[in-house]
């Protein structure tokens, strides 16, 4: 199976995540869209690693492992920020969060 199947699937997943992150009103779903985009990038890493001339080099796998760790940290901090903002504004609607102070 050629490599571009995986790459196009990954591009589709990225586009779905991007569309969600750009259009949804709820801050949590925007974060979910960003997670989907990160996952699409990880899939690209793995696909390129698998189809590389020397698959016994494991840099691709290690890159994805580090990327997963960073994405997990990002999700934790992002959701904590959303909870903190919710406490302030009593909403997670992004269109109502329109001031930086107070």
């Amino acid at each position: 199976m050629p490599l571009h199947y995986y790459l196009i699937f990954s591009a589709l997943l990225f586009a779905v995540g991007l569309a969600g992150a750009l259009t949804r009103r709820n801050a949590i779903l925007v974060l979910v869209g960003i997670e989907l985009m990160l996952n699409a990038a990880n899939l690209n890493f793995i696909a390129f690693w698998r189809y590389s001339p020397d698959p016994n080099a494991i840099q691709g796998i290690l890159f994805v492992i580090f990327s997963i760790a960073i994405a997990a940290a990002e999700a934790a901090v992002g959701l904590a920020l959303i909870i903190s903002i919710y406490r302030h504004y009593k909403t997670t609607n992004l269109e109502k969060m329109d001031s930086l102070k107070g």
Binding site: A11, F14, L18, P55, I58
Partner: peptide, 29 residues
Amino acid sequence: IAVLVFCVLTRVILSSSVSQRSLPAKPSP
């Protein structure tokens, strides 16, 4: 914007020579 990004990505992927690569032997990491 999302559709545009997807179209650009697909165009680049399909026009690249890398994407026609076939599967090498099974690695054992």
